[in-house]
Simulated assay, not measured.
Amino acid sequence: MLSTSNATFSPVEDRILDAAVSCVVDFGVERVMLAEIARRAGVSRPTIYRRWPDAQSVLAAALTREITGVLTRVPSRGEGREALVERIVRVARELHASRFVDAILDSGPKLVMTYVTERLGTSQYILIEALAGELARAQAEGTVRPGDPTQLATMVLLTAQSTIQSAHMVEPILGGEDLARELTYSLNGYLKP
């Protein structure tokens, strides 16, 4: 199972993150203010500052929680490459359907570009680590091609991430089930021995 142990939050932190998510959905990334997050969470700004240095850090934590939450809610339906690819595609579909992720993609180009072109974020590292473990097990049973599992996991992440980010753009050509089918084909082809 893909691990999500790096992304657990206290009840107060969950309230703060819930408030941040609602702010992003209502106002967009650029207009999220720490004072509004605090008001919606029913906490003081110092309570937030004890946990995160600024609103962008709160949003990054909320995104990590969203992604790891999806991993937890979308269980594996078997062993090996095909089951792993099927789970990756289901996770990608659920993230694509997330109002929070959608709002970030629509209203936070600077935030998105940071994690597309400049550096990996916490949730990306969590995904790579979890995928690498699953890929190593699938390699041991012979359903995934040889290669460094971390490198393979990173390429899978790039492929799925790009699919999520561009899904709205290509929807008239390749939407819904068609996109899921082609992502499945692409990942199976890449990982097949």
Rank of each mutant, 00 (worst) to 15 (best):
I128Q: 03
M1I: 03
T4W: 09
R40K: 10
S5R: 15
A55G: 00
I126C: 13
I173N: 07
G147R: 06
L71Q: 11
A61E: 12
T64Y: 03
S3Y: 11
S107W: 01
K110F: 07
E94D: 09
V101Q: 10
V112G: 00
P109S: 01
T159M: 15
E118Y: 07
V156C: 13
E118G: 03
T159D: 12
I126H: 14
L105C: 02
L63S: 08
S57K: 11
L17Y: 05
K110L: 12
T47S: 13
G108P: 12
A60W: 04
A61P: 08
R40H: 07
R81I: 05
T159R: 14
D106C: 04
A7V: 14
M155A: 12
A62V: 04
R51Y: 01
Q56R: 10
S76Y: 02
L95W: 10
T68E: 13
N188S: 15
V12A: 14
H168Y: 05
S5E: 15
T4F: 13
A132M: 09
Y190N: 07
L152G: 06
T122L: 11
L2R: 01
S22F: 00
G175Y: 09
R77K: 13
A38H: 08
G80N: 09
L34Y: 07
L2M: 08
L84V: 12
L187G: 05
V70E: 02
L152T: 10
A138N: 00
G69N: 08
G42H: 11
S44M: 04
G78L: 02
V43L: 14
V58P: 05
V91A: 02
D14L: 13
L187M: 05
A167W: 11
E129L: 11
D148P: 13
S107Q: 02
S57P: 05
I104F: 03
S166Q: 04
L135M: 06
T122Q: 13
N188R: 11
R31G: 11
R39E: 15
A38Y: 07
G147W: 06
R87H: 01
G189M: 00
M1R: 02
E30F: 09
A138R: 01
T117A: 05
P75V: 04
E79A: 15
Q124F: 11
V170W: 11
I173S: 07
V156W: 11
T159N: 13
L187W: 01
I104D: 04
A7Y: 12
Q56A: 14
Q139A: 07
A97P: 01
L183A: 06
L179Y: 08
I88Q: 04
Q151F: 14
R77Q: 14
C23S: 14
T68M: 09
Y49P: 00
A7F: 08
M1Y: 03
A55C: 00
L105W: 09
A60P: 02
V21C: 09
L34M: 15
E171M: 14
G42K: 06
Y185M: 08
P193H: 14
G133L: 06
L158G: 13
P149M: 07
V58Y: 03
E182L: 08
P172F: 08
V74S: 00
A19K: 05
R119K: 09
L95F: 12
A97N: 09
H168Q: 14
T184S: 10
Q139K: 06
D26C: 00
A41K: 12
I128G: 05
P193R: 15
R90P: 00
L34E: 13
